[in-house]
Design a protein around this nucleic acid. Structure first.
Lengths: 123, 123, 123, 123
DNA sequence: GTGGTCTAGACCACA
DNA sequence: GTGGTCTAGACCACT
């Protein structure tokens, strides 16, 4: 279910966070679903448990998941998926602003969007 | 001319690289223009010369500038500005792909682009 | 394992790079092998950690090794040894072209090769 | 007659030395021929006179040219061309040794030599 | 005066 | 403990 690239420049715990958020956004993980335990996920991915713990901790701080002592971590139930997409839209807007800074015309951006959305769905 | 945020999480030398690329892209810096000397830029920004040197060196290995020992660093002359915009478009495409992964519709993206590009130009 | 000549005109970090490439080429270092840590190699060679780090960083940008933060540096896994030999052959070809420019006959070159390759293997 | 690449990593004075040696080797410049004056060559190439002077000085130290005060620099007359080719052969031998270190077979080297020497002559 | 290399030593993020 | 970034200050080669 989770895929990690240890050679990537982005820290493992960030990769994990991102994937969990993705799963929430597309409702593969729904409110009150249980996340795998830190230790099981760590051993499954072959990474340090501290790394998984860090990802979970940050997600909790940001309100996307909640922890029940002795039971595990669960997806929050406050429109979490909508929040995530809002967050992503903000990132997108920042990217667009950057494009504008480089004097890149909006037509090129439209075209790129169309290209991407016309492709078949794949990972 | 150059602005650095020492508080930022992104390394100083990366901020510098980005700004130089921006200036090339919008042709504030044109092929064979001379960049400020490592030492002068460093003292002007209040950072260590090594930091500026690192930015320049990376830009050189990436082919955006060239160095003449004893004379200084200069903007490369092979359509560097076009190359940079291409690179940026690639980044944008990746971002759009990410949006698609999160099941965000393309209409929202269009709208965001319009918002950004309708604003007055500012830094 | 590594030998550095601090007197040499060629920079220490270049000497290091060369030796590492040599070891990869003759498969003393194989894909995914771990390189010595920056600090340990530095102290072993009696040089500054920054110097070793620079060598590693350049090897990484050239694609010969990859870095996993918090774990160390490792040999890349894409036929790195073959790539290095190809690179070396290119250097050799350039040298031969130079010889031709100086109007040196190819017979002399053959002879030199035979001399070198008939000697016993040594460092 | 002389060609300089200011963007090259090899210092200008080295490029100059190399070209002069090349011309001696192929007898475009013969013993007792006069070299262009420091100032004329410098202005012709658009480089600093000190740079040309440095090239000449090193060539004199190495015995390839001699200076007559108030008259100029001249090619030495002691089989200079043969000496240069010897020097070049030494460089070639070092390169071959390097190839051997990387465990590159001699057959590949033969082949490369043939390729180069079969090409038409060009710069 | 220009960039290139190096040292000594520091702090941080990641695992 | 690992590499990444940064500072302060030094020496060298090239122009």
């Amino acid at each position: 279910m989770f895929l990690i690239d240890v050679q990537s420049k982005t820290p493992i715990f960030e990769q994990l966070k991102k994937q969990i958020l993705e799963f929430i956004s597309i409702q593969v993980l729904s409110p009150n679903d249980k996340l795998p335990s830190v230790r099981s996920l760590a051993s499954q991915l072959g990474v340090n448990p501290n790394t998984v713990a860090k990802a979970y901790q940050e997600l909790e701080t940001q309100g996307y998941i909640y922890t029940v002592k002795g039971k595990g971590c669960f997806i929050s139930d406050n429109d979490t998926d909508a929040q995530i997409r809002l967050e992503k839209m903000k990132e997108f807007k920042d990217k667009v602003k950057e494009m504008k800074k480089y004097h890149i015309g909006k037509d090129g951006l439209y075209q790129t969007i169309n290209e991407v959305y016309e492709e078949e769905y794949h990972d």
